[in-house]
């Protein structure tokens, strides 16, 4: 089963084409990493898939259904959730409130202005459990904007997976973290994405080859290689364009 597929997706900003025809299939339940040099268009790709920007041409399908014309919130409701490379949280709300908000839609609360949140036992327990899972329980009532960088990154991941999306897109979740923090974050990601489809942009090669079932290498808006880690590692074009430079 293909969870997410891109068919010759292109995106131009003004006269410059940034995504130059990407075709990619991601199997359901797969952990798929995207690597590539800075400015390759990885984040832009995420922005197109999640509906943040409209695509210029091509098709994007989620579980066989076209999503490239939908607004972000509708794509999210279909079970695709994403995180941001630059942390994007509700900074004047507490950590707990951030997580609870991220749970609301998937639990069917919609725009309710008649259900008092303090009475929603299941919802509150789920938010507390998530807080525990993210190791943020001691920061429960702190304003999200006052958290440390690593804590904010953890919250970012938590908000992305809270709604129980079946396809999860993480954009450099461990960037800027220390080694210990990265290890912890990776264990967390592994656990919370169990049984889900994960598409992740990551620069840390150790993390990538540890985690990925499949790897896609993007350079200059195009896919130059895609497949199982061993095959990608052996790929000559990849070694020349990218891995060689990194691994020395």
């Amino acid at each position: 089963m293909t969870a997410l597929s891109l068919r010759d997706v292109r995106k131009s900003f003004g006269p410059t084409e940034i995504i130059r025809g990407i075709t990619l299939d991601i199997a359901a339940g797969e952990r798929h990493c995207i690597i590539g040099p800075n400015g390759a268009g990885k984040t832009t790709c995420f922005n197109l898939i999640s509906g943040r920007f409209p695509i210029t041409s091509g098709e994007i399908l989620l579980n066989g259904e076209r999503i490239d014309t939908l607004p972000p919130h509708k794509i999210n409701r279909k079970g695709l959730s994403r995180s941001f490379q630059i942390t994007s949280i509700f900074h004047r709300m507490s950590v707990f409130e951030n997580l609870r908000c991220a749970l609301l839609w998937s639990r069917g609360y919609r725009y309710s202005f008649w259900s008092p949140l303090w009475r929603q036992k299941g919802l509150n327990e789920a938010a507390e459990a998530l807080l525990e899972e993210l190791n943020l329980a001691s920061r429960r009532d702190v304003l999200a904007g006052l958290l440390s960088y690593a804590e904010q990154r953890a919250l970012e991941i938590g908000m992305t997976i809270a709604g129980g999306a079946s396809v999860v897109l993480l954009d450099e979740p461990t960037a800027g973290m220390s080694n210990t923090e990265t290890d912890y974050a990776m264990t967390l990601i592994r656990r919370v994405t169990e049984g889900k489809t994960l598409l992740m942009v990551e620069h840390d090669m150790k993390v990538v080859f540890d985690l990925a079932d499949a790897i896609t290498v993007m350079v200059y808006g195009q896919v130059i290689a895609s497949g199982p880690p061993a095959a990608v590692r052996a790929n000559r074009a990849v070694q020349e364009a990218y891995l060689g430079a990194l691994e020395g």
Binding site: S50, P71, L104, P116
Partner: peptide
């Protein structure tokens, strides 16, 4: 109202209009 889903999401859209979209809200 401040203690209901709508009230909280009003705070959320105040803090970060864009992020609200990616947790399912318009």
């Amino acid at each position: 109202l401040t203690l209901t889903p709508l009230g909280r999401m009003a705070n959320a859209t105040r803090d970060n209009f864009e992020r609200a979209q990616f947790i399912g809200y318009d």
